[in-house]
């Protein structure tokens, strides 16, 4: 029987979450908001934060940038399929702006997949100043699912027998029916989550195209939820085809329209990832001073996401990424 030694960074109590969900307004009200206002209102120092998408795909970049820009402190973070999102947040550590990340539940974070490891994310974690626990991607997805179901935990058959389990805060239990050993994974109710979607109406009814990763559960697990969308659409369109609504309005606290909002990440059917920008992003991190200069220019020196996009090449660059996404160069 494996035992774990990691600390739990959030309260898995379903009863506590029920009280918070009960207090939330379910009224059909206009939630459209600029990103800075949404982040100022909904993300607080010390919060547990989770970010949707899959690392460099369908990423709510504008919200993640804004969290760093507003110098939020001592956040806890779910490192679930996290790549560029996590690495942007790391820009709030060891860059003279206090400590943005305090605790990380890591399943995947420091890497940018095939593109390599992030030197600054390594610096931040290897410093020992951020408290970590280990999980697997599915384990964190199950923890969101448990929360979305309104439960304090769910069992699974992963992580058993490994150091990943030992450094997690999971426990083993015996199945009450078969006696088999299972991992008991505590529900994860983030204080706040940010998810980027294709389309939303002003109340927060959302449509996603392509893979949903863990976002449908994450949207239901989060106590507060910020949605960024490529396009705002009329509510009549949502109501003309409700089968396409995958996140309902009553989960959502703010809706921010951010065209090209996943940049430099991929947005399925819209635009591909900007590999040149991501390469530069990893490269400048090798040296802390050049990384600080990069952040000054691209993150702190810009007023909003639109200015950032302009700086990265603006519409011509985005048109090129749209052609790449649609495989027009292959003649398809």
């Amino acid at each position: 029987m494996t035992t774990s030694q990691g600390q739990l960074f959030s309260d898995p109590s379903a009863n506590r979450a029920r009280d918070q969900f009960r207090a939330k307004s379910k009224a059909l009200v206009d939630k459209v908001s600029p990103v800075p206002d949404a982040v100022a209102r909904l993300v607080h120092d010390g919060d547990y934060l989770a970010v949707g998408g899959f690392g460099g795909a369908r990423l709510p970049t504008a919200v993640v940038h804004e969290i760093v820009r507003q110098k939020k402190q001592n956040l806890r973070f779910a490192g679930h399929t996290a790549t560029h999102d996590f690495q942007i947040l790391c820009a709030g550590n060891l860059t003279g702006r206090g400590q943005l990340l305090a605790k990380v539940e890591n399943a995947y974070s420091v890497g940018l997949e095939a593109r390599g490891l992030s030197p600054h994310a390594r610096r931040v974690i290897e410093s020992g100043a951020v408290e970590c626990t280990e999980w697997s991607n599915y384990a964190l997805a199950v923890r969101f699912k448990a929360a979305a179901m309104g439960l304090p935990f769910l069992p699974s058959r992963s992580m058993l027998g490994t150091d990943t389990f030992r450094q997690s805060a999971a426990k083993t239990i015996a199945c009450p029916f078969t006696g088999e050993t299972l991992s008991a994974l505590p529900a994860l109710y983030p204080d706040v989550a940010a998810i980027h979607v294709h389309e939303a109406d002003r109340f927060g009814n959302c449509r996603i195209r392509g893979t949903t990763v863990a976002d449908l559960d994450l949207a239901r697990a989060a106590l507060r939820l910020i949605i960024t969308c490529e396009r705002l659409i009329p509510t009549e369109e949502i109501r003309s085809d409700p089968t396409r609504t995958v996140i309902p309005f009553f989960c959502v606290d703010a809706v921010c329209e951010v065209p090209f909002g996943s940049y430099p990440g991929n947005m399925p059917y819209e635009y591909f990832s900007d590999e040149a920008h991501l390469k530069q992003w990893l490269h400048v991190q090798q040296d802390l001073d050049s990384f600080k200069a990069f952040l000054e220019k691209y993150l702190f020196g810009v007023r909003d996401f639109h200015e950032y996009l302009q700086l990265c090449g603006g519409l011509p660059r985005l048109q090129e990424l749209r052609r790449q996404e649609l495989l027009l160069h292959l003649g398809k």
Binding site: G79, T81, N106, A107, Y108, S109, V110, G111, L117, A121, R122, I125, E126, G128, C132, E134, W135, S136, N137, Y138, A139, R157, S158, M159, L160, T162, D163, T164, Q167
Partner: peptide, 21 residues
């Protein structure tokens, strides 16, 4: 030393799950 590693790598990602199942 897990708390102060020489090199921090990405972690399990989905590998632990896939290898379990």
């Amino acid at each position: 030393d897990y708390k102060k590693p020489k090199v921090r790598l990405p972690g399990s990602g989905g590998a632990n799950d896939l290898a379990s199942f």
